[in-house]
Design a protein around this nucleic acid. Structure first.
Length: 476
RNA sequence: CGGGGCAUAGCGCAGUCCGGUUAGCGCACCUGGUUUGGGACCAGGGGGCCGCAGGUUCAAAUCCUGCUGCCCCGACCA
C-alpha cells in the first residue's frame, strides 16, 4: 500500500529510517554521525519542549544556559565521571589559529561546568535549593549512530539541582522521574516502566540512576529518560560547601536529569505503522488537515467557500491546515498527510455538500466516519482525546502481551530469541552475573522496577538467592 | 575498531565483466492541456567534474593503484 516505506515485518530498522524520510523528520548531514532535524521533526521537538518546560516551571525550575566548552581539568575532577565520558568526548585543541593552553571538551553533559559555577553561587543553606534546567546540544562521539536514537550531536534538556539535604535531593530525583513518566505516558502516549538502574548501568558519577524504559514495536527496550541522584560526588569534586542552620560546613547534595531528541525515536517506534508516521494528538503541531475535493474550478470555489464557513470557529481550538493545492489530486494528499502522521483528516467534496456532511478519518485506525457539518469542533476535540487514549492503551496492551515472567534460563534464552520482549527475572544483584547475562544473550537489565514486589526466588543465571525480579530485554 | 556493501541528475538505479556514437531509465522537478472521492494522464522541457587523486591507453563511468565518504551487521552508548 505505501510506496517507499519498508514493511515492519520485512525489516524493522529500514522501516524506521523510511518513516523518518517519508515524513521528512530528519536528514543525514554531511557530517558523519550528525543529522539535520527538518521542520516537521523539529515541530515535534518543540511540542515536547513546550510540554516539558511547563512541567519543569510548574515544579519551580528555571532555565539558564552554560557554555558548551568545558576546560579539560573540570572533566577530570570526578573520577567515575571522567572514566565514563572521556572515551566519547570531542576535544577542541586549537582556537584562533593557535594551539590552546588547555584543551576544551565539547560538553557531553554539563555537570562539571555547572558545579564549577555553583561553587560561587552557594554559601549558605539560604542559597538552596538551586533548581536549574538547560536546553542545549551535547556531543558524544558514538561509533554507530541512528537517526534520533543515537547521533553524535543531539538536543536535550539537562536539569541540575543543588540541595541542602540528601532527602531533598532524593525527592527531587524521584519527582523528576515522575514528571518524565507523566510526560511520556500522558503526552506521548508511550507507556513506560519506572525503576532504578543497576550499578553497571547508572550514570558515571551518580549515587544511583532512575529511568523510564519503553517497549518499541519490535519488542526491544528503549531508555527514554534518566534522573540521577548525584549525592555529594560533584560537590566534593568541585568543593561546593554551604553553611547549614547550625553553622557547620557541609557538602551540597545534587541531582541531574535529562531527556533528549531520542524521545522522537521512541514516539516513532511506539505508534507508527507501515503507512508512515502516526502522531498522538498532543504531539502533533497540526492535529487536523482539511482536504477538499472538487471536479471543476467552480466546484473548487464552492467547496473552499463552504470550508471557510465550517472552519470559522476552529481557530483557537486546535491547529489545522486546509490543503487547497490544485496541482495534485486528493489521493496524493491523503497519502502525504498519512505519511506525516497528522491525526485527523477531514474530507469534503460535492457529495458531502449535498448532505451537509464531512468525512473524518482517524490516522491511528484508518476509520472513516461521516459526520454532520454542525458541531464539528466538538466531535474533533473528542476524537483527538479518544485517539490519545486509544494509542496509549494500544501500546500498553502490546507491552503487556510481550512481557513475560520466566524462571528457567534455557527457556528464557529460547523465548528471547524467538519472541523477543521484556522478561521479569530473578537476579542475584551481582555485576558479574549481569555481564554474563549480556554476553550470553545480548540482553541487559533495563532496570529494577519500582513496582517489583518483594518476592524471594533464585537467580535465573546462577541459582543464588534473589529478593525481587528485575526487567531484562534487548535494548537500543 | 572488525565484517559486509555501495559511490553515475534531487532520490532510486542500469551501464563497468569484455574501454569506442551525444551516458541511459524510473520517480521527482518545470511548461501546456485534460483531470480531481485513495499515490492521474498526454505532450514537451531542464538538470551529470560518472566520489577524489594519480596511472595505463589513440580513447576511461568502464582497466590498475591509492585515498575519501556513506550505509548495513557486531563490540560501546541518552
Amino acid at each position: 500500500m505505501a510506496k517507499g516505506i519498508t514493511k515492519r515485518s520485512v525489516d524493522y530498522s529500514r522501516w524506521y529510517t523510511d518513516v523518518i524520510a517519508a515524513a521528512q523528520l530528519a536528514d543525514y548531514s554531511p557530517v558523519k554521525g550528525c543529522m539535520v532535524i527538518r521542520p516537521t521533526g523539529y515541530a515535534i521537538w518543540e511540542k515536547m519542549q513546550a510540554a516539558l518546560d511547563k512541567l519543569f516551571k510548574d515544579t519551580g525550575h528555571e532555565n539558564a544556559y552554560f557554555p558548551m566548552f568545558i576546560p579539560e581539568h573540570f572533566m577530570k575532577k570526578e573520577a567515575e565521571h571522567v572514566e565514563g565520558f572521556a572515551p566519547e568526548c570531542a576535544v577542541v585543541t586549537h582556537g584562533g589559529g593557535k594551539e590552546l593552553e588547555e584543551p576544551l571538551f565539547v560538553r557531553p553533559t554539563s555537570e562539571t561546568i555547572i558545579w564549577s559555577m555553583y561553587k560561587d553561587w552557594i554559601q549558605s543553606y539560604r542559597d538552596l535549593p538551586i533548581l536549574i534546567n538547560q536546553w542545549a546540544n551535547v556531543v558524544r562521539w558514538e561509533m554507530r549512530t541512528r537517526l534520533f536514537l543515537r547521533t553524535t550531536e543531539f538536543l536535550w534538556q539537562e536539569g541540575h539541582t543543588a540541595h541542602a539535604t540528601a532527602e531533598e535531593a532524593e525527592a527531587e530525583t524521584k519527582q523528576m522521574l515522575e514528571i518524565y513518566r507523566i510526560f511520556s505516558e500522558e503526552y506521548m502516549a508511550v507507556p513506560v516502566i519506572t525503576g532504578r538502574k543497576t550499578e553497571r548501568e547508572k550514570f558515571a558519577g551518580a549515587l544511583h540512576t532512575y529511568c523510564i524504559e519503553a517497549m518499541m514495536q519490535d519488542t526491544k527496550a528503549l531508555q527514554a529518560g534518566t534522573s540521577h541522584n548525584l549525592g555529594q560526588n560533584f560537590a566534593k569534586a568541585f568543593d561546593v560547601t554551604f553553611q547549614n542552620e547550625a553553622g557547620e560546613l557541609e557538602s551540597v547534595w545534587a541531582t541531574s536529569w535529562g531527556v533528549s531528541t531520542r524521545l522522537i525515536g521512541a514516539l516513532i517506534m511506539t505508534h507508527s505503522d507501515d503507512n508512515g508516521l502516526v502522531l498522538p494528538p498532543k504531539m502533533a503541531a497540526t492535529p487536523v488537515v482539511f482536504v477538499p475535493i472538487w471536479a471543476s474550478n467552480e466546484e473548487m470555489n464552492t467547496v473552499l467557500k463552504k470550508i471557510d464557513e465550517i472552519t470559522a470557529d476552529w481557530k483557537g481550538k486546535f491547529n489545522f491546515k486546509i490543503d487547497d493545492r490544485n496541482n495534485i489530486r486528493p489521493g496524493r494528499k491523503f497519502n502525504e498527510w498519512e505519511k506525516k502522521g497528522i491525526p485527523i483528516r477531514i474530507e469534503m467534496g460535492p457529495r458531502d455538500m449535498e448532505t451537509n456532511e464531512v468525512v473524518l478519518v482517524r490516522r491511528d485506525t484508518g476509520e472513516k466516519i461521516r459526520l454532520p457539518q454542525d458541531n464539528l469542533v466538538e466531535r474533533i476535540l473528542t476524537t483527538l482525546e479518544t485517539m490519545q487514549n486509544d494509542m496509549f492503551n494500544k501500546a500498553k496492551e502490546f507491552r503487556k502481551h510481550n512481557t513475560h515472567i520466566v524462571d528457567d534460563y534455557e527457556e528464557f534464552k529460547q523465548r528471547l530469541d524467538n519472541e523477543g520482549g521484556f522478561y521479569l527475572i530473578h537476579w542475584n544483584g551481582k555485576t558479574a552475573t549481569e555481564e554474563k547475562l549480556q554476553e550470553e544473550t545480548k540482553a541487559t537489565i533495563r532496570c529494577i522496577p519500582f513496582d517489583s514486589p518483594d518476592e524471594p526466588g533464585k537467580c535465573l543465571i546462577t541459582g543464588e538467592p534473589s529478593e525481587r525480579r528485575v526487567l531484562v530485554a534487548r535494548a537500543y
